[in-house]
Amino acid sequence: MSISFRLLIAALIIFILAPIVVVVFASFSATGVAEFPPSEWSTKWYPHALSQRLFTESAVTSAWLALVSTSIGVPFALGAALVLVRTRFPGRDAIQTFLLTPLIVPSIVIGLSILLAFSAAGIREVPMRLIGAHVLVTFPYLVRTIMASLTRIDRSVEEAALTLGAGHFMTFWKITVPLIRPGIIAGMLFAFIVSFDNVSVSLFLTNVKLNTLPLAILNYVEYNYDPSVAAISTMLIAFSLLAAVVLERLVGLRRVVGG
């Protein structure tokens, strides 16, 4: 690798990391306004942020929402991936593309469409609306990662199980599922993150009483510019890093991200 190429890579990494670093520094400023670099240092905004029910309640809502919508999506995504990878039928490619549309259509459009659809169907409960919408936006991530790991399975491994006396269900449960487990975990992680930081779809569906964390942050910075938002953001960054480390220990991050 030449020196100039190394410099280019370094510049890119700095470009990507700089905003994150700024937020982390800003969260430690002692003044009432988030500033970079801080003129005085303090950790007081962390307890301050955690004492605000706006943040804590919406964080719980977001985590709960991400978990429930991801868990609901997994069995459906598994079924869809199995059909799409293992069978050949007319219209298969069309269905595959259709399942991935939430990745392609602008999410603000999806938010609006879901709002209109729920209204037309008479679904008014906010939790129901949120779960339904988040299952929809996270589904393509689950299907895609599970499909990727299904495609990589050597079919003769499953055939070997069949010849050894395992029925179709046993073969699926004892062989197929363990082999695609990294794909399922990766898909769930992606889906969780996508749901957790979704703004554009939730925007249409929440109300004053039930808010998600990204929307709470958005609301907060409209009227306040103190470093507690930076403190929340720093905690989210730390949380993501922790998740990455745990995943690395559990299944090997490279295997998961590499698909």
């Binding site: 050597d154 003769s156 491994v157 055939e159 070997a160 199980a161 069949l162 010849t163 050894l164 006396g165 395992a166 029925g167 062989i175």
Partner: peptide, 15 residues
């Protein structure tokens, strides 16, 4: 799985 057979594959096909 209802035939009493043993099969060896080119790719080993170990679990």
């Amino acid at each position: 799985f209802r035939r009493n057979i043993g099969m060896v594959f080119q790719s080993h096909a170990l679990f």
